[in-house]
Design a protein around this nucleic acid. Sequence first.
DNA 1: GTCCCTATACTCGGATAGCAAGTGTCCGAGTATAGGCGG
DNA 2: CCGCCTATACTCGGACACTTGCTATCCGAGTATAGGGAC
Lengths: 162, 162
Amino acid sequence: MKISDGVEWSIHCCTVLALLPEGVALPAARLAEFHGVPAAYLAKHLQALARAGIVESTQGPKGGYRLARPAAEVSLFEIVVAVEGGEPAFRCTEIRQRGPAGMDPKHYKIPCGIARAMWRAEDAWRASLQEQTLADILGGLARDVDPRQAVKAATWMQEVLT
Amino acid sequence: MKISDGVEWSIHCCTVLALLPEGVALPAARLAEFHGVPAAYLAKHLQALARAGIVESTQGPKGGYRLARPAAEVSLFEIVVAVEGGEPAFRCTEIRQRGPAGMDPKHYKIPCGIARAMWRAEDAWRASLQEQTLADILGGLARDVDPRQAVKAATWMQEVLT
DNA sequence: GTCCCTATACTCGGATAGCAAGTGTCCGAGTATAGGCGG
DNA sequence: CCGCCTATACTCGGACACTTGCTATCCGAGTATAGGGAC
């Protein structure tokens, strides 16, 4: 079980986009440069975020990506689903129906108890992600980030936006 | 993000082993036959369960696998960890240290807030799995399984154990 | 000086290769059993 | 008849190919901009 790197990158990108002045967009290439990741691959995930309505894209010069909604209205869960897809991590293959003790599929009305148990755990995971928003991440940044790094980041952004 | 099929198979196998009479073992080949899955591949996962101390193995004729502890003392979490490994699903690659705004690693004492958020969700997942034991699964079986299937399964087991 | 037009260059978007982890399989090492032999 | 020994066959255990999905990349479509020209 492994969560795609794209999830980590996407959340970081959304955090940066949330810090952007109103009405300004940042190209994928700049986001990639800022995080030191391959631009072409990051673009793939930003597209997924755009399809999910989390970010908006503008083409042409001075174009790029920007957050589609206030940071407080974007949960981490939405980002994860946008990048990884909404399918549950545990997939019941109904092996209870196979083998010598199996019966006709119509007799299995209730999902397998094992699947229910695994899904219950996944629901707890989803609930936790759903109640954490980008705004919470930003609050944590303000608390934990070294002021010198904040200055470096702000300077870089100034330079890029000119 | 996908949980290995081996987890599903392993939990089903543990459930069957829990229904076994005291002091009797079931070979991997029989477990595979019962669930209609490839025997050689299932064996791989049973070995992982044995290494983790969840099941015990006996060699030679009349040998096989049996549960190492009472069903109430085996949580689903243990099984998942035994099969999938204990590494977190979300792996922080510290991209905050890279790029033009990155600083020397020694300045990053606290884990990235994004990683902390993701890990918090995983903790909720783990907690849910930890409080669900094989005994709970067995209880669900008694409630939900079609009596005719129970008979088929019991008959098969009788036949195999002779 | 102002407006319009056009060419430009910059952006996103989807289609295309490469690689790692999970999936599936095999054969060798070890051991409890069962039968045969001797006492 | 009982106990011991040996050969057997059945078990687990780790080492070896294959396939799916994530990783990484490229080039084409679309568009806001900026400059130049006409009025």
